[in-house]
Amino acid sequence: MAVTPLEAPDLAATSAAVLSVRQLVKHYRARGAQRRLGSAVRAVDGVSFDIGPDETLGLVGETGCGKSTVARLVTRLIEPTSGMVSYAGTDITRWSERRLRPLRREVQIVFQDPYSSLNPRRRVGSIVGDPLRVHGLGTKAEREARVADVLRRVGLDSAHVGRYPHQFSGGQRQRIGLARALVTNPRLIVADEPVSALDVSIQAQVLNLIADLRSELGLSLLFISHDVSVIRHVSDRVAVMYLGKLVEVAQTECLFSEPAHPYTASLLASVPRARTTGAPRHRVGVVGEPPSPLSPPSGCRFRTRCPFAQRVCAEVEPQLTRQGAGGSVACHFPLSRES
């Protein structure tokens, strides 16, 4: 069965970017005593980025920085507090669930946990094929043929359609999740930590599979991970997130060879590596834990852990500004190529 792109005329591509996010904010009401004080958890606090056709943007940062919240915001699984999400040039930020239904064919998500993201009571054929049925695509025979084809693309046998998720390994379950995301022929896939729950050897297989499928199908991809090595392997550009904000966005090789933000340099310094000519010049040591998103520091949110922080860092919040041809950085004292 040929699954055609989304046909709704109001979603026709009017922008070079497949996905545009502008000043996206998501605050959660705090609980207990903090709620009585009127505090809010600032999970995402003014994030902006674009993803172009056939491009993979890697989103990296420590656990709890807001990466998964971004994934759910851009796929409209949760409502933003403010800001804009635009798909193919159309603002979808305030669309109703009914209006979003046809968009679900175009924008799919792969979840982090391959164990809890699959319904244990449904067979694989139903799990992968349900999106086709929900969107009314094809006859029953055509849907079955499409499911078999997608399972083959992700490295599974079509005979697996009658099995349940518990009969598969973790890597196979993640392949099933990927097949479910691919079955409607989407244009954009959001992969939220898709290999973090897998063994290292299985991680490599799934990453190579994602890279092959992206090239073969012409997908755009938002790939989220806390592992900078994984991000480097799959991404064209990288956005670094800290405590709800982006602190650096750059081309992958530029960011890994010459990080501009001290936080980026500290992330790269934490990765064990052999001595090579491609290793980054700056190795920044960072101490302490990230501050609470209930009460982030004034000015630069990284200043409480930054070895280069000065008075202005506490008084003025740095904005993402272009630094040469290498990308953008939000820092009053970015690391220079000459230092």
Score class of each variant (00 low, 15 high):
residue 305 R to N: 03
residue 75 T to H: 02
residue 271 V to G: 05
residue 10 D to C: 07
residue 179 A to H: 02
residue 253 E to S: 12
residue 306 C to A: 09
residue 213 L to N: 08
residue 88 A to M: 10
residue 166 H to M: 03
residue 269 A to I: 11
residue 296 P to F: 07
residue 41 V to G: 06
residue 260 A to H: 13
residue 49 F to C: 02
residue 293 P to F: 08
residue 66 G to H: 06
residue 256 F to D: 02
residue 208 N to K: 01
residue 164 Y to F: 14
residue 211 A to Y: 00
residue 96 S to W: 04
residue 239 A to I: 05
residue 99 R to Q: 13
residue 293 P to C: 10
residue 29 R to G: 12
residue 106 E to W: 08
residue 46 G to W: 05
residue 195 V to L: 00
residue 184 T to K: 09
residue 262 P to F: 04
residue 200 V to L: 04
residue 86 S to T: 13
residue 4 T to N: 14
residue 100 L to F: 07
residue 123 R to G: 08
residue 239 A to E: 06
residue 271 V to R: 07
residue 21 V to W: 00
residue 3 V to T: 11
residue 78 I to Y: 07
residue 83 G to S: 03
residue 292 S to I: 09
residue 315 E to G: 09
residue 184 T to E: 10
residue 139 T to C: 08
residue 297 P to Q: 07
residue 189 I to Q: 00
residue 188 L to V: 03
residue 155 G to W: 01
residue 10 D to M: 11
residue 202 I to K: 11
residue 262 P to V: 07
residue 133 R to T: 14
residue 228 V to K: 04
residue 127 I to Q: 02
residue 161 V to E: 09
residue 283 R to M: 08
residue 78 I to R: 10
residue 186 P to E: 03
residue 309 A to N: 11
residue 191 A to M: 09
residue 205 Q to E: 09
residue 207 L to C: 07
residue 26 K to Q: 08
residue 269 A to L: 08
residue 106 E to M: 09
residue 221 L to W: 03
residue 240 V to Q: 02
residue 156 L to R: 02
residue 87 Y to Q: 05
residue 205 Q to H: 10
residue 146 R to T: 10
residue 156 L to Y: 02
residue 127 I to L: 13
residue 261 H to K: 02
residue 70 V to Q: 06
residue 335 L to C: 03
residue 174 Q to D: 00
residue 127 I to S: 05
residue 225 S to T: 15
residue 246 L to N: 05
residue 172 Q to A: 05
residue 137 L to F: 08
residue 58 G to W: 00
residue 270 S to L: 06
residue 325 A to P: 13
residue 318 P to N: 10
residue 101 R to P: 12
residue 273 R to S: 15
residue 121 R to I: 07
residue 82 S to C: 05
residue 33 A to T: 11
residue 107 V to Y: 02
residue 5 P to R: 02
residue 94 R to N: 14
residue 157 D to L: 03
residue 53 P to C: 10
residue 58 G to M: 06
residue 158 S to A: 15
residue 124 V to T: 06
residue 4 T to C: 12
residue 4 T to G: 14
residue 1 M to H: 14
residue 319 Q to S: 15
residue 293 P to H: 08
residue 296 P to E: 01
residue 231 I to W: 09
residue 65 C to W: 01
residue 1 M to T: 14
residue 253 E to H: 13
residue 180 R to V: 01
residue 328 S to V: 10
residue 320 L to N: 10
residue 9 P to H: 09
residue 288 G to T: 11
residue 26 K to D: 05
residue 53 P to W: 01
residue 252 T to W: 11
residue 142 E to Y: 09
residue 85 V to W: 00
residue 218 G to P: 06
residue 71 A to R: 01
residue 68 S to C: 04
residue 219 L to W: 13
residue 236 D to M: 06
residue 302 F to P: 00
residue 327 G to C: 10
residue 117 S to A: 14
residue 218 G to A: 06
residue 197 A to S: 12
residue 8 A to I: 13
residue 249 V to I: 14
residue 225 S to M: 08
residue 173 R to Q: 00
residue 269 A to V: 12
residue 92 I to D: 06
residue 236 D to Q: 13
residue 265 A to R: 00
residue 37 L to S: 13
residue 203 Q to P: 08
residue 57 L to T: 03
residue 139 T to N: 07
residue 153 R to K: 13
residue 294 L to R: 03
residue 199 D to R: 04
residue 130 D to L: 08
residue 277 T to Q: 14
residue 239 A to H: 05
